[in-house]
Amino acid sequence: MITTTSQAEARQQKREPVLSIRQLVKRFGGLTAVNKVDMDVYPGEVVGLVGDNAAGKSTLIKCVSGVYHPEDGEIYFQGRRVNFARPIDARNAGIETIYQDLALAGNLNVSANIFMGREAKKRHLGGLIHTLDERYMLDESKQVLDTLEIRFPSYTEQIEKLSGGQRQAVAIARAVYWQARLMIMDEPTNNLGVVEQRKVLELIHKLKEQDVPVILISHTLPDVFAVTDRIVVLHRGRKVTEKSTSETDSQEIVQYMVGALDDSAEIRTA
């Protein structure tokens, strides 16, 4: 196992990892997409998961979020061994994955999206009739958006009228509101303008302040270096290195991404 300084620091603070992945293996037919990967995420930590196309980033993440079922290895979440049958189970446990398509309903407004599937209701006639508690949902939505310093011109407009970055913000706010214990973000800055990209990165900082750990999957190394504490590099399904962000640079990371450098090989040969 590769030990890095930041992990050591985290242990010194006696903080248990939120997420622990041990020797995880996922195969598709003859192809081993994820090969004996170990990974830890500590509270309030932003971990970058990088690698070339088909390096196994998305597969690894989908094993954690219950989309795929690993062939071998273990996943521990908040100290407990987990084995999510479906994505909704992972979500109920507190693992929120924000995919590129955002999983928002464009025809609904901000608060309806934040409360989608978990709408607040008012009781009438002794519980005989339930109506939506729009006021409560709107107030709560404004509050969570405020803590993330997100402002919209209108909270009652359908979100398809919002920009890509604003929608991303709604998705993040939803995860925060429902107290995600771990946030997985898959290419969150793709298809966004420069200003919006910066806003999303700011949001990741905010999540860190709220002690919500984030796994950030991204091709955009400047983004990764801007927000992460630690970077994990995958190459052809294997973890080739894990570096504290402050102790590496993008040139070195690229070397790992293309397979020119490989720490795990050194360990094996040693």
């Binding site: 994505p87 909704i88 979500r91 109920n92 398509d101 955002l102 999983a103 928002l104 309903a105 464009g106 025809n107 609904l108 309806a112 989608m116 599937g117 978990r118």
Partner: peptide
């Protein structure tokens, strides 16, 4: 409305 707006999102929202 949610199902008509984004079926996948509705499913993921539980």
């Amino acid at each position: 409305y949610a199902i008509g707006g984004n079926l996948e999102a509705a499913l993921r929202a539980g």
